[in-house]
């Protein structure tokens, strides 16, 4: 059996369940704590493959840490799940939007501005309320529902004080009239393995489980399956969480996550997601 690596920076419930699933499947899982290592980019790629494994499942919670680790491993010939381009596309909301739009997948109307002046013009075009998101970031952080020009001004001014240059890329979206829930789906390869509704907690419009959202099973209809599989393909495929909304015009994809947190989805659906992920990685080795 080939060696499969798992690169991490935190062992959360998700990582622990992957480790258990690997043990159950008899897979030799090589745990790599990214916080304790360095990688020499000048050594023979074969050495890197021998050290990490032919396949590495990238599980770093830190996006940039994971992305840069993946870049080196992939360059050495290791098949990383997910690959570099998929991670890059899904780690940036704008790149995801561009990939979805290009593939003709319904997604919220998105405008991008680079200055305060541009933001106001964009908001006039979009109308209020609108949604302002950072291009990088998760768990609903710094996502704002902009109800009027005054709140837009307050948000832009505070963002301009932040030293992170990426926060000066203003990604603005129409506010989609959806029920107080969205749909989290998990795609592994060519299959939608599970789907759940995520309900916003009380006094909160965001549905992220990290923000206290709750999950319930969601039926995988043909419409949902078709859109989700197309969306996963549009960003390059692999193991992906495709998040959808029920808009008045049908299912829309608003986000795709590359380092999937599946605890909420697992507890809602009881689908053995970690075993399916390990089986997928084993299947990639065999190919």
């Amino acid at each position: 059996m080939s060696k499969i690596g798992l690169m991490f920076d935190r062992i959360r419930w998700d990582e622990k369940s992957l480790i258990r699933a690997a043990t159950k499947a008899g897979v030799d899982l090589n745990l790599v704590d990214s916080k304790t290592i360095y990688i020499d980019t000048s050594v023979n790629p074969e050495k890197i493959i021998a050290e990490y494994g032919e396949i590495v499942i990238q599980r770093c919670v830190s996006y940039f840490r994971g992305l840069h680790g993946t870049a080196i491993l992939e360059n050495s010939g290791i098949h990383v799940i997910n690959n570099f381009n998929v991670s890059l596309t899904c780690g940036n909301k704008l790149y995801t939007t561009l990939a979805l739009t290009k593939a003709g997948i319904p997604t919220p109307k998105t405008l991008v501005a680079f200055t305060e002046e541009g933001v106001y013009k964009a908001l006039e075009k979009l109308g209020y309320p609108a949604v302002l998101k950072p291009v990088i970031g998760s768990w609903g952080r710094l996502i704002a529902l902009v109800r009027d020009k005054d709140s837009a001004q307050a948000i832009v001014e505070s963002r301009e004080q932040m030293s992170n240059a990426l926060l000066q890329i203003y990604y603005l979206q129409e506010y989609v009239k959806r029920p107080p829930r969205d749909i989290r789906t998990l795609v592994i390869g060519d299959e939608v393995v599970a789907a759940s509704y995520r309900y916003s907690p009380e006094d909160e419009w965001r549905t992220n489980v990290a923000r206290g959202g709750t999950s319930e099973p969601c039926p995988i209809t043909n419409e949902l399956e078709n859109i989700v599989l197309k969306a996963a393909k549009a960003v390059g495929g692999g193991i992906l969480a495709v998040d959808c909304m029920e808009s008045p015009d049908g299912i829309m994809v608003h986000e795709i996550n590359s380092t999937v947190e599946f605890r909420g989805l697992y507890s809602a659906t009881k689908v053995d997601i970690p075993s399916k992920m390990i089986d997928y990685a084993v299947g990639v080795v065999k190919k």
Partner: peptide
């Protein structure tokens, strides 16, 4: 002590 949550943390 665990690492402090970074702004690039998440899925």
């Amino acid at each position: 002590q665990a690492e402090i949550e970074g702004e690039d943390w998440g899925e």
